[in-house]
């Protein structure tokens, strides 16, 4: 029976779809503390595509790779609850301030350490940075083919994957050789629910750092239940060139950030009078909402 080695890229993101009145600090930065941290929605669509391949080829292995702060270990637990086999948290201060290129470089270097990979499946886009750039850039860093906007994996054969792509004004069916990076659209099927048995089993899955915080004896736990170990890699676990990491390795710099959320939803009440409508249009142009 054929088996595939699949890596799912998943990012923990603030839930920008439910931005309330206190989501922005006075200085215009995001108040991450009040926004729930969630599994990036399209990464769940990506995970589902991976799980479907595993349904068909049960010997396949799915590992989740996430780069982020320590609490992003939640992403791996969530993946385990839904059927992934394991995961790696890539976490280090050296990655802070990465743009998509530095992010892709770090993720690419981690992937290079993961042995022979058949498929890397990412979400199309993360809902915080909103760029959809990391998938294609990871592919380029690894010298792999990328296939974006996947809605459905139609067929996996020995060496090829056939997919349906959903483009902005049409659909395309393409047959692509492995290994490759796929990015999956939100229009793909939703991810299956957590499995109750798997929750029972994996709710104790931890990174070393988490266990140290909880004062647990991790050697004992990992010896007894090796599958509860969430691997944690820092910059020292992968080969990197420091000039390509974090802020230094990021060609793009954020010069300024403006908050465009109106304070609360206290509506501005205006009449149809000319001056009031003009004032509103000027405000909308200034805030780059229009224009």
């Amino acid at each position: 029976m054929k088996a595939y080695n699949i890596i799912v890229l998943a990012k923990q993101v603030p839930d920008t779809r439910n931005v309330g009145k206190d989501a922005m600090k006075a200085d215009g930065t995001i108040n991450r503390a009040v926004l729930p941290a969630i599994f990036n929605p399209e990464d769940l669509n990506a995970l589902e595509q991976a799980l479907r391949i595993k349904d068909q080829f049960p010997e396949s292995k799915i590992n989740i790779l996430t780069m982020g702060p320590g609490r992003a270990a939640d992403i791996i637990r969530e993946g385990l609850y839904r059927g992934a086999d394991g995961g790696i948290l890539l976490t280090d201060r050296a990655f802070a301030g990465s743009d998509t290129l530095a992010t892709s470089y770090a993720i690419g270097q981690a992937l290079k350490k993961m042995g022979k990979i058949d498929m890397i499946i990412a979400g199309r886009q993360a809902i915080d940075g909103d760029t959809a750039q990391v998938g294609p850039q990871v592919a380029e860093k690894l010298g792999m083919l990328q296939i974006t906007y996947v809605e459905e994996v139609l067929e996996v054969t020995d060496k090829t994957v056939t997919v349906k792509r959903r483009l902005e004004n049409g659909v395309e069916t393409a047959k692509c050789p492995m290994p490759l990076v796929m990015t999956v659209n939100g229009s793909a099927p939703d991810c299956r629910a957590r499995n109750a048995k798997r929750i029972m089993k994996f709710k104790k899955a931890r990174t070393v750092t988490e266990l140290q915080k909880e004062n647990e004896d991790y050697t004992a736990l990992y010896n007894e239940h090796p599958d509860l170990m969430i691997q944690e890699w820092t910059v020292n676990d992968i080969e990197t060139d420091a000039s390509q990491l974090g802020l230094t390795g990021s060609p793009t710099k954020v010069k300024t950030v403006e908050n465009v959320v109106l304070q609360a939803k206290d509506s501005k009440i205006i009449s149809a009078a000319d001056d009031e409508i003009e004032a509103m249009m000027v405000e909308l142009i200034k805030s780059h909402t229009i224009g």
Partner: peptide, 8 residues
């Protein structure tokens, strides 16, 4: 951030 901020 889902249209909540504008960055230069």
């Amino acid at each position: 951030f889902g249209g909540n901020i504008i960055a230069t």
